[in-house]
Amino acid sequence: MRYVYLIFIVGVIGALAILGPRGAKSTRPPLEVFPDMDRMPRYDPQAESAFFSDGRTDRLPVEGAVARGTFYENEYLATGKNGEYFGKGFPIDVSNEAMARGEERYNIYCAVCHGAAGDGDSMTKKYGMLTVANLIDQRLVDYSDGQLYDVVKNGKGLMLGYADRLSVEDRWNVVLYVRALQRAANGSVDDLAPAIREELGL
């Protein structure tokens, strides 16, 4: 019996040594203990397909197809252009909500390169991002709203477009917020309300 216990203890120690503690780092795929129906023969987003020749479950829309909710009758809203030319003005409701949404989206997608203040001073610039536009520069203040929208959507120069990550409304919200940044950076004492000016002693 003594030997039985000895073998048992050796077995336990061996198992512990091989299996290791919980949470140990490993590159081996997780073991599925009872894999009943864990993996069903169905398609998940961005997954692999054995059926389609390109091996993906995600399908591109058929050429000429327009996905629901992506068609805008208002051409200016969708492209920033009236006919051939970039237009002026905002085709969305200009409100505090739009501004707040624009600020949030700007800080996610734009501030990385253009800086939180829009002056092009950012972390990525320190790492070698070339020619980041200074959004508060007079050159861009002179851009029409539609033209700014077009840059957000399609990119310009080395900047790639953000059409895949910003919806039509969000692009306009971002343009709105960029306008606010420009206003803030290029403002003068005269822009302040009299009460605030007094408070600041100006």
Binding site: L19, R22, G23, T27, P30, L31
Partner: peptide
Amino acid sequence: YATPKYTRVGYEP
């Protein structure tokens, strides 16, 4: 061992 606390946590492919 037979729990995701062991089988999944720590997986870093």
